[in-house]
């Protein structure tokens, strides 16, 4: 629950950041397009499996809020005209989506899956989303490096986004010990750790700047 709330909080902070400041400076559209793709490919089970009301509501909430973030940065005046396309340069289709798709296909085939049923395709899309989420923040980290001086709200949003997956690691350890019949999913574990590590450097400078109480900027 803490992990999910960090995730929700990071989305709220980002929406506030866009709506209140009415600009998208220092924000990577590409990262949010990747997250939208992550949610759309992971939550196809909205139509096939019901876990709980909480689970379904959150899934719909993530898809809706991320869509609205992408919409605002792409199309909504005056926000979209402040989006700095020239700084958001990570080639996310070639270096994130394509490799994750190949990796998901390989994982699926190696673990004995086929490609001939809806459930198989769904399973592969789910694996793809796990891989893609782990690196979806990369375009945003690149933009951050370019701007160096990080606005408070932008910094907070990335901090909560990183904390969310870190707390999931705690959750997996807890479930592995205390939940009878919990199956290990090593792809999920590996990607969760990778995802958290990608934030490690950012966490360090973020916490240092909070302790000093000053402005937050990244080193060159």
């Amino acid at each position: 629950l803490c992990g999910d709330m960090c995730h929700v909080f990071s989305i709220i902070v980002l929406l506030l950041r866009l709506r209140v400041a009415r600009n998208a400076q220092g924000i990577s559209l590409r990262t949010h397009e990747l997250f939208l793709l992550v949610f759309l490919t992971r939550y196809t089970d909205l139509f096939t499996t019901f876990y709980s009301l909480y689970n379904s509501v959150m899934k719909v909430l993530y898809i809706a809020s991320t869509s609205s973030i992408v919409y605002a940065i792409r199309l909504q005046e005056p926000i979209c005209s402040t989006y700095d396309r020239a700084q958001d340069t990570f080639r996310h289709w070639a270096f994130a989506v394509a490799p994750c798709a190949v990796l998901a296909l390989l994982t699926h085939l190696i673990s004995g899956g086929s490609l001939f049923s809806f459930v198989d395709i769904q399973e592969m899309l789910w694996t793809f989303s796990i891989y893609l989420e782990s690196i979806a923040i990369l375009p945003q980290l690149i933009v951050l490096q370019r701007f160096r001086e990080v606005e408070n709200l932008t910094g907070n949003y990335i901090f909560f986004m990183g904390s969310y997956r870190a707390l999931y690691i705690v959750n997996w350890i807890f479930r592995a010990y205390y939940e009878p019949g919990y199956r290990h999913h090593y792809v999920v574990y590996f990607c969760g750790v990778l995802q958290t590590l990608l934030y490690a450097d950012f966490f360090y400078y973020y916490l240092m700047s909070k302790r000093r109480g000053g402005k937050f900027s990244l080193p060159t």
Partner: peptide, 10 residues
């Protein structure tokens, strides 16, 4: 308990 994995997570 029933067999479960991370698919019931977000």
């Amino acid at each position: 308990g029933k067999d479960q994995d991370a698919k019931d997570e977000l």
